[in-house]
Amino acid sequence: MAELKQAAKIIIAIEADLAALIEIGIYYSVDRYSMYLVDCGGIESTRKKWALRIRHSIANPDRLVSTLLARNWIVDEATVDGSFSAVTLRRPKTQIRLRLDCSAEFAQQLRGQPSEEAA
């Protein structure tokens, strides 16, 4: 039940971003397995870092990521693992995180970006 409450909290917090994506024609999947919580804290982490995993429903998932970056989200982590690549975005000064698919090339570019909060 705690995970369900956490997911609801994140969805409510990002509702404006989700609506903005739809307004400009960038769609995400809304079936029952398209949004779910993932722990992106890593193996060494002692506490969970929850992120809402959102599946894309467009041919170019990089467009979804770059649009959220343009809406002031920051890169928390980018993972490149062969054909599977993903990025964790975080809303600045919050613990609200999204985990999204992206191309390996785009994830590699994002890995090299310094965090705006670290600057």
Rank of each mutant, 00 (worst) to 15 (best):
R63H: 06
I24R: 10
Q109L: 15
E116P: 15
Q6A: 10
D101F: 13
V87M: 00
R53I: 00
R99L: 03
R53A: 01
Y36S: 11
K5D: 14
Q108P: 00
C40N: 10
Q108T: 09
G82T: 00
G112I: 05
W73S: 06
V87H: 05
Q95H: 08
C40S: 10
S103P: 02
I58Y: 03
M1I: 15
K93I: 13
K48C: 11
E23Q: 13
A118T: 13
K5I: 12
D81T: 08
T67D: 07
I74Q: 14
A118W: 13
S34K: 01
C102V: 03
I43N: 09
S103F: 02
S115A: 12
A107T: 01
I26F: 08
V80M: 04
E105N: 12
R53W: 03
E77G: 07
V38F: 08
A19G: 08
D39V: 05
A59Q: 04
S57A: 10
A20S: 14
S83F: 02
S45M: 03
E117H: 11
V30W: 06
Q113V: 12
Q6E: 11
D31Y: 06
D81S: 09
S29Q: 14
V38N: 07
T88Q: 02
D81Y: 08
W73L: 05
E117I: 10
V30P: 08
Q108E: 14
A104T: 00
Q95A: 09
S29F: 11
I12E: 10
I24Q: 11
L37F: 07
R53Q: 03
I22S: 13
R90H: 07
L37W: 06
V30L: 07
